[in-house]
Design a protein around this nucleic acid. Sequence first.
DNA 1: TGGGGTTAT
DNA 2: ATAACCC
Length: 428
Amino acid sequence: MERARAGALAGSPVHDQVVPAGSSSSRVIVHVDLDCFYAQVEMISNPELKGKPLGVQQKSLVVTCNYEARELGVKKLMSVRDAKEKCPQLVLVNGEDLTRYREISYKVTEMVEKRLQPLQSDELPALTVSGHVYNDQSINLHDILHRRLLVGSQMAAEMREAMHDRLGLTGCAGVASNKLLAKLVSGVFKPNQQTVLLPESSQDLILSLKHIKEMPGIGYKTAKRLEALGISSVPDLQTFPSKILEKELGISVAQRIQKLSFGEDNSPVTPSGLPQSFSEEDSFKKCSSEAEAKSKIEELLASLLNRVRQDGRKPHTVRLTIRRYSSEKHYNRESRQCPIPPHMIQKLGAGSYDAMTPMVDTIMKLFRNMVNVKMPFHLTLLNVCFCNLKAVNTAKKGTIDYYLTPSLSTMSHPGKRSFKMKETHMED
DNA sequence: TGGGGTTAT
DNA sequence: ATAACCC
């Protein structure tokens, strides 16, 4: 049996994929979702907050809240005003600085990685289920698929227990035969519980969705386009003529989401490893002068330089993103990017401020490329992003070492990263 | 409506 | 560079 996982950054799920050695026909996927992660981190930082209704605030929004607050009617992404109205006792903490969330998030990722050690044969779990079974379906121990899913439920329990013991974090888990179903079933019993889906109940699970927007992979835009076609429920999507759907959405999206509507999803668990980009952003009511923009960019850049220095890799591209004020447009962001000049890349690691001034200058060029500063403008967001991260070039190009260093010889294919999988054999 | 992040085109 | 998705 072979296991791989996808890493967790703030708010992201942890996946653990269990596949039979040398086969890909049947998988067991464990999806772990932390409960209101930011609120949990805040309660760890300040234990006095435990037991009280707590909301995490960014600007005028309560982005998430603990379960005490939810019981009193507070919802994720509710405005501070509505939340206070619903729940006057609500305690709010500011969550705009993500540093502590990132720190704990990295610990989770590290932990999951360490837990990928092969299971020893003397610690094989007993063949019983851990947690809930979706629909209370009865287990058939003669069914090989059932047996393998039970092993998955044991692994999920073990991961959740380790996360609680070592980091004090609680979360839900779902165990199923693919990522879609594992994610959907993880939310059936909340908070801090886990559920396994046996294959016979797959249809019940997806038919329990009241609207296609609840299907992971169908977002705001796609849902709107589907609604225009008269598709709003899962059965609507299942029975809609494939050819017409393909013409409307393109063959790729059409085929993928129609398979999703049947609970089918063959997408692999992709190990995410280290982040591929770092960005810092701030939103505000109004920014309408170049000087104002420059000072905001300097702030964002200072934090970014620290993060990049800690990471150790060097970014080779900078991107500036803005949002212009507009009353209607839901999605409205523009960006400009450019390569970072090699002499600036070198200065990035030193911890000096040498990198600051020239970098601000190149970002301000991007700014003026997007915004005509001679005309009035009104911005509501600035984001600076470092991407195209490459490992530090320790070996000199053109030397034997360069070609003998694996991380360098593959550097020209940044999209491709390979991972060693740990392997261990288990009997069913 | 926030402060991130990824992938596909 | 944009658009869509995720939390």
